[in-house]
Amino acid sequence: MKYTYYPGCSLHSTAEEYNASSQAVFRKIGIEMEELKDWNCCGATSAHSTNDYLAHALPLRNLILAEKQGNDVLVPCAACYNLLKYADYHMRTGGKDSEQLNEDMQEIMGAKYRGSIQVRHVVDVFAEEKVREKISSLLQKPLTGLKVVPYYGCLLTRPFKVVAFEKNPEQPVKLDQLIETLGAECVRWSHKTECCGGSFSISQPELVLKLTRKLVEAAQYAGAEAIVTACPLCQTNLDTRQHTAGGGEGSSIPVFYITELIGIAIGAEGSTNWLKKHLINPVPLLRSLNLLAAS
């Protein structure tokens, strides 16, 4: 199986470790990926908050490019995934509006979207039985003793009609299963799908501080030593707003991308470089459990 890989803007900047760990893990598992050529920003929260047309047209350009390239699109960023999926849904169900939009794209790019590809999130692909079996068979360092909570946030699960890849989006389980596959302890908690505040980290930091504090407290209350995410906004918000530079206080717990944990467990290359990007240093926790070699 080969995928067209859509990294998105965050993965080329603040979330570089999510990009590097995703690529390293897929390479190790043997799933081939080719980056989408000349991809553009999905428009994120800013487009859908202020201009309905942009919110559909920006991701649609990527879908049309992906269709030319030929394979299903694989997306690690939960926000990009959500918006690409939304555009795909709009084109399949949007009636006259979507037809007009397709005409516009024909005029702009010389091509229309035919809906011949699927948009997939990395968690959904990892959770496929075959892929999970492959991960199991590659385990070099089971994450024994690592207690983590799976944090799905908003954009992977809502709106469930459009984006959900879970049977019950109020109680998603695919990240849980992956964590267990890695040999870590998946801790039950109350805030799996609560919101971290997303892009408000820049415009309304005090609101994000409140939301992230609640999330971290809930994770600690449940007995977790770390949080696992599959979204660059969730990871960045939780990581930076616990740090004193971001207004955080008291005890703090590391926030991992799921791909980082898979990478460490299956011995994918580069894990120490990924972890250096975190503001809350996860190395002491991993060392205390003998999950990282002492350097």
Binding site: H48, S49, C154, R158, F160, C195, G198, F200, Q204, L207
Partner: peptide, 11 residues
Amino acid sequence: WVCACCKTCKD
């Protein structure tokens, strides 16, 4: 403006 677009209300 402070609606975070989490879509919990929608669902």
